[in-house]
Amino acid sequence: MVRVVISNSIRFLLLMATQVFLLKNIGYYNLSVPYLYILFILVLPFGIPNTLLFLLAFFTGLTIDFYYDSLGLNAAACTIMAFVRIIFINLTVQRDGFDNEPEPSLGIMGFQWFIFYAFILTFSHHFILFTFENFKFSEFGYTLIRILMSTLFTVSLMLITEFAFFQKKLR
């Protein structure tokens, strides 16, 4: 339990630092912007209570918002993503039979499941993020392209990260 908290805290700090100090300056113009920090919410353990998940998602988003000067924007997107995560995991994963509080990571869940999971969650996050950033229905086509391009960017960064810290575990 303590190990899980510590490892997640370290992951949180690392992802935040990467996001704020490195990825904030990276992007293909305005069209494709990576938001890798949401990987933290993606790989939180399966057994986490909903309340804690929402709190963590909200405050993760809020922390990013402080750096991005967009108070509430990332928080909203992360909250939606947390909800999508709960639904997705309820639908695709058998809840019982977890030992050792495993995480929905690439090594544990397998490539196919993880890429699907990452894509759906990233898309929901980016969808809320970009539409609320734009905050109008005009230019919706452009916003949609931004969402898709950014989703591809973020998901590929997630896969690279997951492969870099690959841990083969048996489920």
């Binding site: 909200f58 988003g61 967009s70 509430g72 909250t79």
Partner: peptide, 25 residues
């Protein structure tokens, strides 16, 4: 259905923050 209610709570908070503190929105 706590997930849904939590979603509403946190999402509302975020939106309030978003609209209150961002001049564009």
């Amino acid at each position: 259905y706590n997930a849904f209610f939590l979603l509403i709570i946190f999402f509302t908070i975020s939106l309030i923050l978003l609209v209150k503190h961002n001049s564009f929105q």
